[in-house]
Simulated assay, not measured.
Amino acid sequence: MENLYSVNGVELCAETYGDPLDPAVLLIHGATASMVWWDSRLCSELAGRGRFVIRYDQRDTGRSTSYPPGAPTYAMSDLAADAVDLLDALGIERAHVVAQSMSGGTALVLGVDHSARVASLTFVSTSTGDEGLPPPSADMTRLGTPDFNDPAAVEEYVVRSIEAEAAGHFDEATARALVQRDMARARDYEAALTNHYAMRFDGPRGGFGDLKMPVLVLHGDADPLLPLPHGEAIRDAVPGARLVVMRGMGHGLSEPYWESFVDELVKHTEER
C-alpha cells in the first residue's frame, strides 16, 4: 500500500514489500520516473527472496512534492537527503541502495556523504559522467519535446522513448499501460518530465573512488542512451566493484532480465 511521508521538508510517497526484518533494499529510479517504473511484480519477486523492498516517488514524480515546471529549487544532494530521511521514517538504519540511470548520481552522494546508511550500492545503466564516454545513439536524440498541452502527445512521446531505450525488448501494451498509470498518479507530469534535468547538480565530498561499501554495476551491452563503456567506467573507478554485463539489454530493466537482476542483487546484498 502506498503511504505519504513528511521528510526533509517535503512529502514523499513510498511503498514497501516483504518483511521489515529482512535486509532493506531501497530502489531509486532514474530521471523523470516514479516508483511504478520499478514493476510491482519485480518488487514482489525480490521480497520473496528475503529482502524488504522500498520503492518511492522522488520529488517531482508520482504523488510526491512537485515544483513548477522548469523551476525546481532543490539539488541532487537534496534527493539523497530525502532518501536518508525516508529510511529514518521507516525505521531503517542501513539499506542496500539500487539506483537506475541518472539516479546513480544520487546513489554516489549517498555512498560518499551518508556512507553509514548504505550497506551496498548497485548502479543500473548509469555512468560516471566522465568526458570522452560515448554519446547516446542517434535514435535517442531524435525524440524532441512533446506538447505538454496535449496529453495524448505526451503519452506517445514517453511510449516512444521507452521503445527507443528498449533495444528490441519492447511491448507496446505494457509500455502504454505504464505511462498511463504514471501520468494518472503525477501531481504535475510536465514537472516530472523536466525538473530533474533542471535541478542543481552538486556532487558529494568525494568521488567513485571513495566508495567503501560493496559495489555492483549492472549494464546492458545494447544500451543506446549510456553505452556499455559508461558502466565499465564505474567498475574501473570503484576499487573492487563488480560489473555484470546484461547481454542484449537496453537502457531500461526490461522483463526478460528480471530473473538475472534479482539473482545478482540477492547475491550482492547478502548480509556481511
Rank of each mutant, 00 (worst) to 15 (best):
Y5W: 13
N8M: 05
G9L: 05
G9Q: 03
C13D: 12
C13V: 08
A14F: 05
A14K: 05
T16L: 08
Y17L: 06
D19L: 04
V25C: 11
L26E: 03
G30H: 00
T32A: 09
A33Y: 12
W37V: 01
W38T: 00
D39R: 05
S44Q: 08
R49V: 07
G50V: 08
I54Q: 07
R55K: 13
D57T: 06
D60M: 06
G62W: 03
R63F: 12
T65S: 13
S66C: 14
Y67N: 13
P68L: 09
G70Q: 06
P72M: 05
P72D: 03
A80Y: 04
L86I: 06
L86K: 00
G91S: 10
R94T: 10
H96L: 09
S101E: 12
G104M: 01
T106W: 03
T106M: 11
A107C: 10
L110F: 11
L110H: 04
S115H: 14
R117H: 10
V118S: 04
E131W: 15
S137R: 11
T141I: 14
T141F: 14
G144D: 13
P146M: 06
N149M: 15
D150C: 08
P151Q: 00
A152D: 14
V154T: 08
Y157P: 06
V158A: 01
I162A: 09
E163V: 08
E163N: 10
A164H: 08
A166E: 13
A167W: 06
E172D: 15
T174M: 14
A175N: 07
Y189W: 11
Y189A: 00
A192Q: 01
N195R: 00
G203E: 14
G206N: 03
F208G: 01
G209A: 02
D210M: 07
D210Q: 03
M213F: 11
L216G: 05
L218M: 10
L218I: 06
H219N: 07
G220K: 00
A222M: 11
D223E: 07
P224L: 02
L225T: 09
H230G: 08
D236I: 12
A237E: 07
V238T: 06
G240K: 02
L243N: 04
G248A: 03
G250M: 00
G252Y: 06
E255P: 03
E259I: 09
E259P: 01
V262S: 02
D263L: 03
E271H: 12
R272D: 09
R272M: 13
R272V: 12
